[in-house]
């Protein structure tokens, strides 16, 4: 479980996160939704310490992450996997080497075990025969999937995904969503997913937090989200014709 307590962050005097308090539960897929620019990525980067929050605390299972020095943080980071919005694969390494990287760095597996793990992870994201390609030779969606494979390679206890399925076609997007939620349940990890895709919300949103202009505006489950009376949330959810036909009252 990850808890966030009264988190504030501003950039150049412009507040981006305003007093966010939130808990992400273990074994569940926790979604953070919100419009573009609402602060989802900044929140996630604060959680993992890539951006330093101005005020507030972050707890990883009661370990106060905000108070830690960089050595202690490094120890926690070995327990987490992250998928960046732009995939962030290592350009100079092949797909296989990208996934091997954390394994080489932090495990004592034998060569054969590592090879098996790589194949397993690539299978999980439905990629085949790409082992020896460089990231530049992959499509956008394939990069995302390799990045997920890399993030799950060392069996993280905490998984962070920043828009895992943006830029993917609907079937692949659903595949990725399902994958994330399956891994979460299977290994009982704490997963945080940023998204603005309603399909994902309806598919895997065990717990959903809606961020509006840097503030936590609403929390609930995917079932509750369709029947909320929150104006901004409804505006977000019922932005498309399709959603409005599903629920004509809104």
């Amino acid at each position: 479980m990850i808890r966030v307590n009264h988190l504030w962050k501003e950039f150049n005097r412009k507040p981006v996160l305003k007093d966010i308090s939130l808990a992400f539960e273990k074994g569940k897929t926790n979604l953070v939704i919100g419009q573009s620019g609402s602060g989802k990525t900044v929140l996630m980067k604060c959680l993992v310490g890539l951006v330093e929050a101005d005020r507030g605390n972050i707890y990883y299972d009661d370990r106060d992450f905000s108070a830690m020095g960089f050595k202690e943080r490094r120890a926690i980071r070995k327990e987490l996997g992250m998928l960046f919005q732009g995939a962030a694969l290592f350009d100079s390494l092949t797909v296989e080497e990208n996934i091997l990287f954390p394994l080489n760095m932090f495990t004592t597996m034998t060569k054969g075990e590592k090879q098996k793990r790589v194949s397993f992870c690539l299978d999980r994201v439905d990629l085949h025969n790409v082992h020896h390609l460089l990231p530049a030779e992959l499509s956008g969606g394939m990069k995302k999937r390799v990045a997920i494979a890399r993030a799950i390679a060392i069996k993280p206890k905490y998984l962070f995904c920043d828009e895992p399925n943006s830029g993917l076609d609907p079937p692949t997007a659903i595949l990725i969503d399902k994958l994330i939620s399956e891994i979460t349940a299977e290994f009982n990890i704490t997963t945080v997913v940023n998204t603005h895709d309603l399909n994902s919300v309806m598919e895997i949103g065990d717990c959903v937090a809606f961020i509006y202009k840097g503030e936590l505006w609403w929390t609930g489950t995917r079932h509750e989200i369709l029947h909320s009376s929150n104006k901004e949330l409804n505006h977000f959810v019922y932005a498309t014709e399709l959603m409005r036909t599903l629920n004509p009252g809104k």
Binding site: A75, I76, G81, L89, F90, D91, I154
Partner: peptide, 18 residues
């Protein structure tokens, strides 16, 4: 620098690599 702006350095940090 390219690794920095494409978040590859962040990805390394996240793995716990110096």
């Amino acid at each position: 620098g390219t690794m920095r702006v494409t978040e590859q350095i962040d990805a390394l940090e996240i793995m716990g690599v110096n």
